[in-house]
Design a protein around this nucleic acid. Structure first.
Length: 584
RNA sequence: GUGCUCGUAGCUCAGUGGAUUAGAGCGUUGGCCUGCGGAGCCAAAGGUCGGAGGUUCGAAUCCUCUCGAGCACACCA
């Protein structure tokens, strides 16, 4: 619309365009609602102040003249200018209010956009090794990945959510050694913890003396139960023994991780096993492809891949001088597998400690003939648990590692998710345990759900009072609300404007890969509804027309809140149980 | 040492080169309940946007330097 106006004015010869052509007309939302619904700085890009002021005025005048004549522009109330050359567009209140109906009719798909145009994304996240329970750090990747995937789907992408289990290699041998120790302990046999090359204990162990931390003992019991109390495995030669026990233990731990993910509603479409890459020969095939491409070279008896050719900080070993393949060899096979599945884009959600990975993943994508942006890595920062106002850094050495299941036991999966998703992935997450455990108004994790429950409560009440909000809302003309007193109309307009932002939010998250905007938006919607609810009586509205129009706004709010909660992977409850406050 | 991320209110953090007044949640202080669910609303206090330069008509936002915090820099996985 603005572009058309500029073109028309240009034809009239009222002002000249730069030789490079018209700069991109960017439309944004002003930070303050009083400035209008949309704004553009195009005049400032066409000329410097004070001349830009005149241009802005010309464009605005032209639009004000034209808008009433063009049917498609009938949503425009007024175009104004301000400051050094901003052009503000204000939409008609009745047009805005009437959009509530479209929101209601969109139902569970409300807010869907199509920036993805069906392009396919492989979204890999969590991928914690099957050598122990998932901890609170892994959870961040889980929630970010799951919600990001939901939003990308709403934005028109075909998303495959994937978990990669590193169930091959030396760590599984180590796991086997650890479980063997616990098996022998359980059988009353002499047992010693396995030692590494440096003579120190090496493997995965429960914390000494902690009766709640018996994860590996539990796994050992499961392996005993399925191997005739260990008789089938404990007498094998040492290497075969640790391999078999490790493999069995990993299977149990994988089941444990999958159960945790399910409990937290972190959904995956594909559970990928590293071991499968070995058995299908894809590891060898991947290495051969790189060799054919001329990316491999020998040095010191090992085989290296020249990732520095594509910007990695150093070359990586694929085959060690002792003939063993490194983890990077599996990575090569895995990325090759993903690329062969035809994804348009690969997104990896990784913890900050993996940022050294970015260069090598992008290099590998290029060695297989794609551009560096084929592989995109989303890095999230570490998670601290904050107890009684003090940050406790998690680390195994400090003995205060807490598992995701432990945290879910304390605060519940939904509150947990909300807290994890409130912060940008770029910043360290301090999980405030005290705040999360509160069941009252001060817990932000419940605020959006409460908003939804309150909407549902009002509608329930309306039905009890003999109204039929669902059908009455659809016949309502929301334009009657423009006759409301200013304070009420302001609340109604603020609500509908907030609800209409959903599409922008989904688009923004899809393009920026920043799901934390969704929690903020949910709180904003809930707050806008509360103000509306506070100021605008519904059951006791002054007329049936006004009542029905407000039903429509309420239903639109419910639709949007339910959508936000679903995208967040949270329940959209119709009632909140007033649970006892567990923090006291 | 090199690289990546961060530094914004008492605390935890949003903030897309724009608008006299930089926002939210929690916390603090004070109002509003014979009401459609108060898990709410209204208001107040609280800021050298780590610091110094620079670019720009305009910088929390971009650039350089600097101080501070976290993380990563294996023929480990």
């Amino acid at each position: 619309m603005i572009t058309a106006a500029i073109a028309a004015l240009h034809e009239r010869g009222e002002f000249a365009l730069p030789e490079a052509g018209l700069p991109l007309v960017e439309i944004e939302r002003p930070q303050q609602a009083q400035h209008g619904d949309y704004a553009t700085t195009i005049a400032l890009k066409l000329a410097r102040p004070p001349q830009s002021r005149a241009i802005a005025a010309q464009i605005a005048a032209y639009l004000n003249e034209t808008a009433p004549l063009v049917p498609a522009y009938d949503l425009v109330e007024a175009v104004t200018t301000a400051g050094p050359g901003f052009i503000n567009v204000r939409l008609k209140p009745e047009w805005l209010l009437r959009q509530a109906r479209a929101l209601i009719e969109a139902g569970p798909d409300v807010g869907a956009v199509d920036v993805g145009r069906g392009s396919s994304i492989n979204l890999e996240f969590v991928s914690a090794n099957p050598t122990g329970p998932v901890h609170i750090g892994n959870g961040r990747g889980g929630f970010i990945g799951d919600t990001l995937g939901n939003v990308l789907r709403a934005a028109g992408y075909a998303v495959t959510k994937e978990y990669y289990f590193n169930d091959a290699g030396a760590q599984i041998q180590k796991l086997g050694g650890s479980i063997e120790y616990y098996m022998r302990l359980a059988l009353g046999q002499p047992a010693t913890k396995p030692l590494g090359a440096d003579g120190k204990e090496e493997g995965y162990f429960d914390s000494e003396g902690d009766p709640d931390d018996t994860f590996y003992q539990g796994v050992a019991r499961l392996v005993l139960a399925e191997t005739n109390q260990g008789a089938e495995v404990l007498d094998l030669p040492v290497d075969a023994r640790t391999a078999v026990i490790g493999k069995r233990a990993a299977q149990h731990i994988i089941q444990n991780i999958r159960a945790t993910m399910q409990r937290l509603n972190i959904q995956f479409d594909v559970w990928f096993n590293e071991a499968s890459l070995v058995t299908t020969g894809e590891v060898l095939a991947g290495i051969e492809t790189l060799r054919d491409g001329g990316y491999l070279f020998p040095q010191d008896g090992a085989t290296w891949m020249e990732t520095t050719r594509f910007g990695d900080d150093k070359d990586r070993v694929l085959i060690k001088s002792d003939g063993e393949r490194t983890y990077a060899a599996s990575d090569v096979a895995y990325i090759r597998n993903k690329l062969n599945r035809g994804f348009d884009r690969l997104i990896y959600v990784l913890g900050a400690d993996h940022h050294g990975y970015v260069g090598r993943l992008k290099a590998m994508a290029q060695m297989f003939g794609y551009t560096a942006d084929k592989a995109h890595v989303l890095i999230y920062q570490h998670v601290n648990l904050k107890v009684d106002g003090k940050s406790e850094r998690m680390s195994k050495r400090r003995g205060n590692v807490i598992t995701l299941d432990d945290l879910a036991d304390l605060v519940g999966p939904d509150v947990m998710r909300f807290f994890y998703l409130m912060r940008s992935a770029d910043t360290h997450l301090d999980f405030d345990l005290g705040l999360a455990m509160k069941q009252g108004e001060e817990n932000p994790g419940l605020s959006v759900q409460y908003g939804h429950a309150r909407v549902a409560g009002v509608l329930r009440k309306a039905v009890e009072a003999g109204f039929h909000p669902e059908s009455e809302a659809l016949s309502a003309d929301l334009a009657v609300l423009t006759n409301d007193p200013p304070e009420q109309l302001a609340a109604e307009l603020a609500l509908i404007r907030e609800l209409l932002k959903l599409e922008e939010i989904i688009e923004r998250i899809a393009l920026s890969l920043e799901p934390h905007h969704l929690t903020k938006y949910g709180m904003d919607v809930a707050a806008a509804f509360h103000v509306f609810y506070d100021r605008c009586p519904m059951l006791r509205a002054e007329s049936a027309e006004v009542r029905n129009a407000r039903f429509a706004l309420t239903l639109a709010a419910r639709t949007v809140l339910a959508r936000v909660l679903t995208l967040l992977g949270m329940a959209a409850p119709d009632r909140m149980e007033r649970a006892t406050d567990t923090s006291e």
